[in-house]
């Protein structure tokens, strides 16, 4: 294997990230560096700041302090690039996000949902975008639903379309915030297996999840967030099987119990 310095360079980083809502400090100085192909699972109790953190990574929330860096360039607070800093627009073109409640565009068909980004944001031709979209839709097993409207899909199908929509931007990082929490239990599996497939293909991902077994299975690293700080981090074995932090022990015990 040849040593490629690009391989280990971080794709996305958070440096001393702080976020407050009014006087309530939700994130109290977090650092994270994701290398290409890494899959980080964020776990932690409700209200610990997992969503806030992952939403800072694509600037959906503006950090109160600290920096997001993408491909070793700082991200500014404006939309467009300027000088050495890249803008929020550029960041989001390369960092996809999938939401708990899917947020598909209800006035567009499945195909249009997926082609919207490539056509409008990436300025690709309709033909190119549609070929790409059909390819992605068949990867998530929904090619035959391309002309359906989102309202006619099951939750699991909606979430798979949402994943295809994010992938259509050909992102370098994918952020997923509890993407199976709004699904009926029997539909969780189909979405998790799509994500599993992405991990196998080397997609860099940050995943907020309550599915402990899935986190252990898919993640190269697990972060335990508690009260706005990263309280423990390590491999699945370390964090889930041999937790050191007492609060993490309690948290894991509840899932195993």
């Amino acid at each position: 294997m040849t040593l490629n310095p690009e391989m280990n360079a971080p794709v996305i980083e958070a440096i001393s990230l702080r976020k407050s809502y009014g006087t309530h400090e939700v994130l109290k100085g977090l650092d994270l560096s994701l290398a290409r192909g890494e899959v980080v699972a964020l776990i932690g109790p409700s209200g610990s700041g997992k969503s806030t953190f992952i939403r800072c990574l694509n600037m959906m929330e503006t950090p109160t302090q600290g920096t997001i860096r993408f491909r070793e360039k700082s991200v500014s607070r404006r939309f467009a690039d300027k000088g050495e800093e890249i803008g929020i627009g550029t960041l989001r073109r390369h960092v996809g996000m999938v939401f708990q409640h899917f947020n598909l565009f209800p006035h567009k068909t499945v195909l249009q949902n997926v082609t919207e980004g490539p056509i409008i944001v990436c300025r690709r031709t309709r033909k190119e975008a549609e070929e790409l979209a059909m390819d992605l839709l068949s990867q998530v097993g929904l090619a035959e639903k391309h002309s359906a409207y989102p309202n006619h899909l099951s939750g699991g199908q909606k979430q798979r379309v949402a994943i295809a929509r994010a992938l259509a931007m050909e992102p370098e990082v994918l952020l997923l915030d509890e993407v199976t929490s709004a699904l009926d239990p029997e539909l969780v599996g189909e979405v998790l297996s799509v994500i599993r497939g992405l991990a196998d293909k080397g997609m860099t991902m940050a995943i907020v999840t309550h599915e402990m077994a899935f986190a252990a299975d898919v993640a190269t690293r697990i972060l335990f967030l508690d009260q706005g700080v990263i309280a423990e981090t390590g491999s699945a074995e370390d964090v889930i099987l041999n937790p050191k932090n007492p609060r993490l022990q309690g948290f894991v015990a509840r899932f195993n119990g």
Binding site: G89, T90, N103, F105, E116, I120, V121, C122, R165, A166
Partner: peptide, 18 residues
């Protein structure tokens, strides 16, 4: 219109005008 629609559009890199 649900806040999630703004977020989904923003997440694929659309400007607020788009």
């Amino acid at each position: 219109i649900d806040k999630g629609q703004h977020e989904a559009a923003a997440a694929i890199g659309m400007s607020s005008w788009q």
